[in-house]
Design a protein around this nucleic acid. Structure first.
Lengths: 316, 316
DNA sequence: TTTGCTCATGGGCAATTACTCAACCGTAAG
DNA sequence: CTTACGGTTGAGTAATTGCCCATGAGCAAA
């Protein structure tokens, strides 16, 4: 009781201070005196509210330039939905902006009243987006993971986003109790034949909407950084024309899935049908340009959330 | 074309600047140089984005709703201070939450360094609040009771809170050595003329801040339960339009003190001026709704601590 | 009880932001 | 051509905010 109530009491104070500051527009001095604390403490509470992600900021204006780019990209590649966020010239964090936009889009789907199946892939950008989600209750929806949640070392993979999502969203969650890569095509068959896995795979195939991160290849790409592939395996893949991956499925610059030993070992569910559902890819930045272009060219995805920089590249 | 596109172009710029500022977290200087404008112009664009409500800020915490309600109630009734605590739909205890909030507010006043006079009324809620107070030493302050401390049967009234307060707070205390109700207006005159009573009454009139419980009428209300009024007296009062009481002072649904024999026998000090001091009423729950609405409507109080349920009722 | 550690606090200061004011630009009316 | 006006700009300045640091309270281990 003591420790708990004190901690949450502090968060309550942070929320109150943050509200007074951002919503009511008071200065930190006013907040301090009205809450009976020092200005510095008020400042700390406000920044705590930000750090704890209690404060959500969203921009409610279609910036003309981004809208035009989005239209052009949608038409050129025949996508169902495109969101472009402004590029941040100063650069920096790879998920600034795009995470908020993706969160807004996820939220839009979750707020539907008709029950939906929402599938999620993996990736740092998607994780950042999910972290932006507010608390939502949507008990009618089901959320299913396309990718396994077990890393090469046997631990739960950090960037498996479905668990982060479960923190914020009250809906039924279906993780995929598999490694991301298995040792052989035969092992994959065996594992996928299990009843529990089978039903999750079936559900993912019925997804109404899917959010996936788009990963670039290279020794700095997620597959290597997270230890799924060795450096030399990666080099060989790239020599064979691989440029990107979604949920571990590796594709070439045409967006065709490669017919190689790695893809035979990917235990992820297939990317849901682009005919019957909306599959939204998320990614931005120079390093992902080629992968994104390939994904939209080969129709691995039919929706895209990215930034101006990538959008302009897609239009060249 | 010229005027229109320039205006919307300006809004676009504002949106972009606002995005860079709030979402990307860049400084106005950085925004200025990246957009090729002066720092002042960047600042203007950011504030324009706020003024045009392009920037939506949301606080993702249960307390946000309470703060919104508090603001609305404060504005609607012209109150100086409003605190709203979350309603606890499940639990029944009438003092859950509100007591802690009231205690925090009392503490805030007691921590002031300038000497103040703090007046207290009576009531179960106020008692519960005072029980939440930590030990404080504030020898510069004076605490004065508005109500008598003698019950109808001659015992010390349990819900006279000043004695509970004395347990926790080291400050000079001034109880009111009177019954709550006397037998006639004449007796009240006589008692109030006593030197000791006189000086306490004078002090209460100078209160900087006052905390009072708001009591509902009815045969289950405090005046009946504690034996101050008989059932038939209560029925008659209610027939005459009485809906609530503060320190025994009975008022109608407009918040006007009733001109009746009961009020002539109330020995409590008058409620301190709402012009010169802060008078904070405390109460929550369905049964007190009418009384609370009357009290704020008739400006018997200019501050309020209550719960969401009552706040919503006050706004209808 | 002492010691060492963590963490919240408030003071102080530098960075950042908001506001005021005079000047300026383009336009339209006289 | 002049004048008045609405709106914008940059400079300057006051207000506000972010951050570092010394301090002290609280607490657990010795």
């Amino acid at each position: 009781m003591v420790k708990k109530s004190e901690t949450s009491g502090r968060l309550d104070d942070a929320a109150r201070a943050g509200w007074l500051y951002y919503v009511a527009g008071r200065t930190q001095d006013e907040i301090a005196s009205s809450m009976g604390i020092s200005r510095q403490s008020a400042q700390r509470l406000v920044s705590l509210a930000v750090a704890e992600r209690l404060i959500k900021v969203r921009l409610d204006h279609p910036i003309a330039a981004c809208l035009e780019l989005a239209n052009a990209v949608r038409n050129k590649y025949g996508l169902r939905q495109v969101d472009i966020v402004p590029s941040d010239p100063g650069a920096g964090a790879a998920t600034v902006g795009i995470a908020e936009a993706a969160a807004a889009e996820i939220e839009r789907w979750l707020k539907k009243t008709d029950p939906i199946v929402l599938a999620v892939g993996t990736g740092r950008t998607l994780k950042a987006a999910v972290d932006q989600l507010p608390a939502i209750e949507c008990i009618n929806h089901r959320i299913v993971s396309l990718t396994g949640n077990i890393a090469p070392d046997g631990s739960a993979a950090y960037y498996n986003v479905i668990f982060s999502m479960a923190d914020a969203v009250k809906a039924r969650h279906f993780p995929m109790p598999l490694p991301v890569l298995v040792t052989s095509a035969e092992e994959r068959e065996t594992l996928h034949a299990q009843q529990l896995v089978r039903s999750t795979l079936d559900m993912s195939a019925q997804a109404d909407v899917t959010f996936v991160g788009i990963g670039e290849l290279g020794i700095d790409g997620p597959l290597c950084v997270d230890g799924f592939l060795e450096k030399d395996e990666m080099m060989e893949l790239m020599d064979n024309g691989a440029v990107g991956e979604i949920c571990g499925w590796i594709f070439d610059s045409e967006g065709k899935l490669l017919d190689n030993p790695i893809n035979e070992r990917v235990a992820s569910a297939p990317i849901p049908s682009r005919e019957t559902s909306v599959v939204i890819g998320i990614g931005k930045g120079k390093r992902k340009m080629k992968a994104i272009k390939a994904a939209v060219t080969g129709h691995q995805i039919n929706g895209l959330i990215t930034d101006e920089e990538v959008a302009e590249y897609l239009l060249t």
